[in-house]
Amino acid sequence: MDSFGGALGGGDPKSQIMRQVQQEAAMQNARMLVEKLNEHCFDRCVPKPGASLSKGEEGCFTACMEKYMSAWNTVSKTYVARIQKESQSGAALSNTF
């Protein structure tokens, strides 16, 4: 990509816009991951909220986070592979979901 150097350095308006769009997308992605992660792991690791987060709950959270992110990566790989397969065979799935 010829605009990559410019996008890093700031420079012209076009690269500025591109960089901003990419940053927003990355931010949105991270926000979504944190939200889902917290939702699932809180549900599993803190069934009955006590006066403070116990050591056990914290350990559960760390493991749960790692597992959720592994699941995210597996889903990502499987989904992208599927989209590629479908787009080669001409199915319209990637447009609908």
Binding site: H40, C41, C45, G56, A63, C64, K67, S70, A71, V75
Partner: peptide
């Protein structure tokens, strides 16, 4: 899929 595939309750191991 996390809901379906990871058994309910606490999580002990980070790996799938």
């Amino acid at each position: 899929c996390f809901k379906k595939c990871i058994p309910a309750g606490g999580v002990k191991n980070g790996k799938l």
